[in-house]
Design a protein around this nucleic acid. Sequence first.
DNA 1: ATCGTTAGTCTCAAAAAGAGACTAGCACTA
DNA 2: TAGTGCTAGTCTCTTTTTGAGACTAACGAT
Lengths: 136, 136
Amino acid sequence: MALNASRKPVLDGEECDMSGWDMNNCPVRDVLDRIAGKWSTLLLEALARQPYRFGELRRLVPDISQRMLTQTLRDLQRDGYIEREVFPTKPPSVEYRMTDLGRSLFEPLSKVLRWAEANHPSVKAARVKYDESELA
Amino acid sequence: MALNASRKPVLDGEECDMSGWDMNNCPVRDVLDRIAGKWSTLLLEALARQPYRFGELRRLVPDISQRMLTQTLRDLQRDGYIEREVFPTKPPSVEYRMTDLGRSLFEPLSKVLRWAEANHPSVKAARVKYDESELA
DNA sequence: ATCGTTAGTCTCAAAAAGAGACTAGCACTA
DNA sequence: TAGTGCTAGTCTCTTTTTGAGACTAACGAT
């Protein structure tokens, strides 16, 4: 097929080394499916600066529900990115802080965040262009 | 509050420059909410290597539904990361390929992917540890 | 006595995702 | 010439995920 032929030479000799991917049981998917959530990066960004308590995080991210805040924090804790410490104050207070593993993840992750900030205009422009061409 | 006092000195003078974040209308959220999907990074990773056609992508990521494949590709296209080209073959074939903007995004993104690969064992270990301490 | 504060949990409704049938036009085969 | 398969999707139905908001329990302050 002509179409195929024009694309194939890209990685000659292996044609498509996706074979080594093993989509199920893929480390990248296993790790990323967790930090790819809507709230995960946001909370990691906050906790990368300093520790916060549950209520502080809730006020910091006003449109997160308590349910999702609890759940996302648990997930991040389970994967080892953050720690949870309970202080036996009268109404018990709980502090969340980033672990070394979390900080190590946040280093490359923060670069994506900075890319997003820097390229937000380009993305918005692309959306406008797409939407215009759609209503044709 | 003693608890607070012990955490505050981290970033003295501003205490919490989250005030500049403006959670709603936040560029980082606006951009990341799209590429944070379950399938987005996976498709970007594939298309970063070479262009693919719809059916090829479907075979490459066996557990994606056609519905989500279509939708995710459209989202990525709308944000300007990939392009879609239709070839007027007898059953029309459609090729998807990465744009310059997409490649520019993929550069920092790929570092997160590599982090995930490298640190998969640590994450799995953290999960085991967490699950063990939970059933106590 | 009542109110506010803590960190959640619980329930119900709404939104998103997954599974799989279905389309149309052409090529190949029997 | 009927049957089968290929293409890139769309449509519908079910299941899962998420969001909104009420509720808890013990203590301090008013």
